[in-house]
């Protein structure tokens, strides 16, 4: 598998700094599970955080802080061996955590045109959803008010900018208006996160918008 579309440095840094809304952090964690280049880059940004922590200065802990912490670790369960957290299906492990399983566990809802979606539970700063787009089907033409990250998990889609297949992330913002089309051959499944509602050009999807939280 060759991934051609990666996360930006700005997103990786925001993830390392702990500043991404949960929905975006899910897309980032899912991509990092599939992409070793971005994982190494993310580790490097963590190291920047380590350097910042070292230089953050010192504020004295309470008198009994060490004693209290030592008393506490007395009662902590002995650390268990790391549980293998490797996905066997098409969903990377962090996504499995949110869905409660792999593809069969998804509770899809129809949004028209054969497209189905499932909204995942995250904080309200942004929305994460799984999208199921039958092969050859188009997602309605839309623009973005904020940031949209789309990670392909199965199949492939193409839009005005390029072609995206498993592991690829498309980063779309206000500047992009696009019509993603699932390529023929295999139904396309994506994980998408947005921090503002999309702007649809056609009348029908706009009417349906409040209903489906697209």
């Amino acid at each position: 598998m060759t991934i051609r579309h990666h996360l930006s440095d700005q997103l990786l840094m925001a993830y390392a700094a702990g500043q991404l809304p949960e929905a975006f952090s899910l897309v980032v964690a899912a991509h990092l599970s599939l992409c070793d280049d971005c994982r190494a880059q993310a580790d490097s940004f963590d190291a920047v955080g380590g350097a910042v922590l070292e230089e953050a200065g010192e504020i004295a802990m309470g008198e009994d802080a060490l004693a209290r912490t030592l008393a506490r670790i007395e009662w902590l369960p002995r650390a268990a061996a790391p549980k293998p957290r490797r996905a066997a299906g098409i969903f990377p492990a962090p996504l499995v955590d949110y869905v409660g399983g792999d593809l069969p566990a998804v509770r899809w809802r129809r949004v028209g045109g054969g497209v189905r979606q499932a909204i995942l539970p995250t904080d309200r700063d942004a929305t994460a959803r799984l999208l199921y787009i039958p092969a050859g089907t188009a997602v309605p033409d839309h623009g973005h008010r904020g940031l949209e990250l789309t990670l392909v998990l199965q199949g492939a889609f193409a839009d005005e900018t390029d072609r995206f297949s498993r592991g690829d992330v498309e980063i779309a913002d206000e500047a992009l208006e696009h019509t993603p089309v699932a390529l023929a051959g295999q139904d396309c499944i994506c994980l998408a996160a947005t921090d503002a509602p999309l702007r649809f050009r056609g009348l029908i999807p706009r009417l349906a918008q409040p209903l489906f939280r697209i």
Partner: peptide, 14 residues
């Protein structure tokens, strides 16, 4: 923030 941060899969080797 009372939120959580999704973490990637563990690497194969640990």
């Amino acid at each position: 923030r009372r939120a959580r941060r999704a973490e990637p899969e563990e690497l194969d080797w640990g």
